[in-house]
Amino acid sequence: VTLFVALYDYEAITEDDLSFHKGEKFQILNSSEGDWWEARSLTTGETGYIPSNYVAPVD
């Protein structure tokens, strides 16, 4: 499982989006939707859509 880490803070715009803070880690559930990925936060356990350009793979 490839994990991703937030590079910036993000505040949800719609109820389907997931708010997060810089440094938060995610498991990507679906990355086939283009620039918005469905993800689960490993910090909160919540799922929602995140902007793919706000995250990077964890080394």
Rank of each mutant, 00 (worst) to 15 (best):
H21C: 12
G45W: 07
E46I: 10
F20Q: 00
L42G: 02
V55P: 00
S31A: 13
F4V: 11
L7W: 03
D35H: 13
E15N: 12
D16S: 14
Y54W: 07
I13V: 14
K22R: 11
T44V: 02
S19H: 06
W36V: 08
R40Y: 11
N53H: 12
P57Y: 06
W36Y: 11
L7Y: 03
G23W: 05
L7A: 03
H21F: 14
D35G: 13
L3V: 14
I50L: 07
T47R: 10
S52M: 10
L42N: 04
D16A: 14
Y54K: 07
D59Y: 13
G34C: 11
Y10V: 02
N30T: 08
G34P: 15
L3D: 05
Y54D: 01
A6N: 00
D16I: 14
F26W: 01
Y49C: 08
R40C: 08
L3H: 09
D17W: 15
T43N: 09
A39I: 03
T47Y: 08
Y8R: 08
N53V: 10
K25A: 07
E15L: 11
S32L: 11
R40K: 12
G23P: 00
Y8N: 06
S41G: 03
S31Q: 13
G34I: 11
L3R: 05
D17S: 15
G34L: 12
A39Y: 02
H21D: 06
W37Y: 09
F4S: 03
V1M: 13
L29V: 08
T44E: 01
G45N: 09
W36N: 06
W36D: 03
D59F: 14
E46R: 15
H21M: 12
E46V: 10
G23S: 04
V58P: 04
A56D: 05
L3C: 08
P51W: 08
Y54C: 07
K25I: 15
E24Y: 06
T47V: 13
W37L: 08
Y54R: 07
P51I: 04
I28T: 02
I50S: 01
S41Y: 03
N30S: 11
T47C: 10
S32Q: 12
I28Q: 01
I28F: 03
D9M: 04
K22Q: 09
E15Q: 12
A39H: 00
N30G: 09
K22F: 05
D59E: 11
T47S: 09
T2E: 10
L29I: 11
I28Y: 03
F4K: 02
T14W: 14
H21Q: 12
I13R: 14
W36R: 15
F20I: 05
T44P: 01
L29Q: 05
H21S: 12
E24K: 01
R40G: 01
T47L: 07
Y10A: 02
D9C: 09
G48C: 02
Y49A: 05
S52G: 07
E15A: 14
E24N: 06
G48M: 03
S41W: 02
A6H: 00
S41V: 05
S19K: 04
T14Q: 12
L29R: 05
L42Y: 07
V58H: 08
N53K: 14
E38K: 11
I50M: 02
L42E: 07
T2Q: 13
G23H: 04
Y49P: 02
N30I: 06
S41P: 01
Y10R: 05
Y10E: 00
K22V: 10
I50N: 00
Y10I: 01
Q27H: 11
I13W: 08
V1P: 13
S32M: 12
F26E: 00
G23N: 05
K22A: 11
D35N: 10
D35S: 12
Y8E: 08
D59L: 11
W37P: 01
Y54L: 11
A39P: 00
T43W: 13
W37K: 03
F4R: 03
P57G: 05
N53L: 09
L42W: 07
D16Y: 15
E46F: 11
E38L: 15
T2V: 13
P51A: 04
G45F: 08
H21E: 08
N53P: 06
D59W: 13
H21I: 12
E24L: 01
I28A: 03
T43S: 12
N30H: 08
L42D: 04
D16V: 14
P51M: 07
G48W: 02
P57D: 04
L3K: 05
P57C: 06
L3W: 10
V1Q: 14
L42K: 04
A12M: 03
H21R: 14
I50F: 01
K22T: 08
P51K: 07
V5G: 03
S31I: 12
D9V: 03
T47D: 04
A6R: 00
D16G: 15
Y8P: 00
V58M: 12
K22E: 07
A6V: 01
W37M: 06
T2P: 12
D35E: 13
P51L: 08
L3I: 15
A56M: 11
T43K: 14
K22N: 04
E11Q: 12
L42S: 04
W36S: 06
I13A: 12
E33C: 13
T43Q: 09
V1F: 14
A39S: 03
D16W: 15
G45C: 09
A12L: 01
L18F: 07
A56L: 08
Y10Q: 02
E38N: 09
R40P: 00
L3Q: 07
T44K: 03
E15M: 11
V1K: 10
Y54V: 04
A39F: 03
V1E: 14
N53Q: 11
Y8Q: 08
D16Q: 14
E24D: 15
I28V: 10
H21P: 06
V55R: 00
V58D: 09
A6C: 02
A56N: 06
E24Q: 06
Y10T: 01
E15Y: 09
R40F: 09
F4I: 03
Y8W: 13
Y49N: 08
E46T: 08
A39M: 05
F4C: 07
E11W: 11
F26I: 04
G23D: 06
T47K: 10
N53M: 10
S19T: 09
I50V: 09
E33M: 15
V5M: 09
F20Y: 01
E33L: 14
S31D: 12
D9Y: 04
N53E: 09
Y54Q: 05
K25F: 14
E46K: 15
